[in-house]
Amino acid sequence: MGTSPRTHRGFDHFALRAADFDATVRFYEQALGFHVVYEWNSPGVVGRCAFLDAGNGVYLELFDAPTAVPGGPAAPDPEAPRSSDEERAAHSALLHICLRTDDVDAAYDHALENGARPMQAPAHLPQKGLHGHVDGKIRLAFVYGLDGEVIEFIQRPDFESEEGK
């Protein structure tokens, strides 16, 4: 099977709806080291919006809870009971957000100290190279963020790609 030409330059951002905008901004800044680079209000968007720099040219776009975002689901009913972390994770199209780190254990502990909830403690996962041989270890951990989003921390060597050869 052939590959298609790349029609993009890579990930730009992912978007998250925050039940408590200020608390979510604090969590991403204090627990994960992101920082706000741009905040705005827009016609048709209820509440606040912001871009938080995640590093490497990738951003988190954050929307206040009552927002019905373009191309996204309608605003949630504020009177409806909030589903559990596990229910949201089981039914979301987005499985998780992954942040690369040099120390999974420290990132996991720091996230928990700043309000994240544990999902999977740090552990090793064998890495299989392009030709099926195990050539290193991947260390990873998962937490639930303040809005039920699943956040993975990963520590791994760079992958070889066919394109890079």
Results as ranks from 00 to 15, higher is better:
residue 29 E to C: 13
residue 22 D to G: 09
residue 67 T to K: 01
residue 123 A to N: 13
residue 25 V to I: 15
residue 143 V to A: 05
residue 150 V to M: 11
residue 53 D to V: 06
residue 34 F to K: 00
residue 69 V to W: 10
residue 82 R to T: 15
residue 25 V to P: 01
residue 162 E to H: 12
residue 13 H to S: 04
residue 43 P to Y: 02
residue 156 R to F: 02
residue 59 Y to S: 04
residue 32 L to F: 02
residue 46 V to T: 13
residue 123 A to C: 09
residue 129 G to T: 03
residue 9 R to H: 14
residue 91 H to V: 06
residue 58 V to Q: 15
residue 48 R to Y: 14
residue 13 H to W: 10
residue 165 K to H: 11
residue 49 C to F: 06
residue 9 R to P: 00
residue 29 E to H: 12
residue 126 P to T: 12
residue 149 E to G: 02
residue 142 F to R: 00
residue 87 E to P: 04
residue 110 H to M: 03
residue 165 K to P: 03
residue 118 P to F: 15
residue 63 F to D: 00
residue 80 A to K: 10
residue 29 E to K: 08
residue 20 D to N: 15
residue 107 A to L: 10
residue 28 Y to T: 01
residue 51 F to Y: 15
residue 133 H to M: 08
residue 15 A to E: 08
residue 78 P to V: 03
residue 59 Y to H: 15
residue 97 I to D: 03
residue 28 Y to Q: 02
residue 165 K to D: 11
residue 80 A to M: 11
residue 153 F to K: 00
residue 88 R to K: 15
residue 159 F to C: 05
residue 63 F to E: 01
residue 163 E to V: 05
residue 142 F to V: 01
residue 78 P to S: 07
residue 78 P to H: 04
residue 31 A to N: 03
residue 74 A to P: 15
residue 144 Y to L: 11
residue 132 G to E: 11
residue 125 L to M: 13
residue 49 C to W: 05
residue 63 F to S: 02
residue 113 E to F: 03
residue 22 D to F: 04
residue 50 A to K: 00
residue 77 D to M: 09
